[in-house]
Amino acid sequence: MENTAIEKQDLYYPMMSEIVKVETLTNLEKRFEIALPDNQILGHLPGQFVEVSIFGYGEAPISICSSPTKMPNFDLTVRNAGKLTDKMHSMKEGSKIGIRGPYGNGFDVTKFEGKDILFVCGGIGLAPLKSLIDYTIAKRQKYGRIIILYGTKNPSEILFKEDIKMWQGSKEIEFHMTVDKPDEYWKGNTGVITTLIPPIDLDISNTIATVVGPPIMYKFVIMSLKGKRMPDENIYLSLERRMKCGVGKCGHCQINDTYVCQDGPVFHYPHAKQLEEAI
């Protein structure tokens, strides 16, 4: 890609970028559309992240939730969980923030071509997977079935309601969701995300599973997938750690000998399985 951002940066110096759109998704999450300076294109792969920087508040790793096919801007879905994200939630369109990245290992989209893709998204895990979902939808003819499983704790935490409506209405996409703790208006499935896996009919040898969710979720989702005899090589995970510098130096995100900010956050399951501290 031309005019991509990464080659022009010093390791720790952000590009001063602009928030061009803010959208409230839930009580805790907002989506921000970001424009880099000089019409630069981020040039990311689905699954990669950036370091967001606000002077006086620090930096935080945020996964990119829009497809690389959306250009020139990109989207970040941010949960209000700390100093920086709290400040970011108070920012309006036109505000400036710093961006470093994109960083890390993303999904190898060419390797997935011709395959059915199963997305298993728990909670905020939908945000990093959405970049891949949107990408596969944008290049729909290159991929087989698109099956999205989405679980949240309760209905108020559901993200991207507009997109979900679109996915539910599309014949090209199979979408199933569940909530763990329904409220009085909830009419859909209830239970944890693993309850969605057994009923799905999968062509196991030709299906790629991508899994993102809270730390506790991976073990159980993998167990369910193994229950369907899905081979390890077909499973991809994205793991969250404290990716503070983003460039493989500060040490905070290490899982055993691996820097998540370099070799992750997207891991091929056969690799992740070798890392004792991973799952």
Binding site: G56, K249, G251
Partner: peptide, 26 residues
């Protein structure tokens, strides 16, 4: 060992400040 932490600190004129890094440890 070379792991580090990074923190922002502002001056009393709070629009101005520094981003500093410190030795840290696992």
């Amino acid at each position: 060992c070379y792991c580090f932490d990074v923190r922002d600190e502002v001056e009393l004129e709070i629009s101005k400040g520094k981003r500093e890094r410190f030795w840290d440890g696992c």
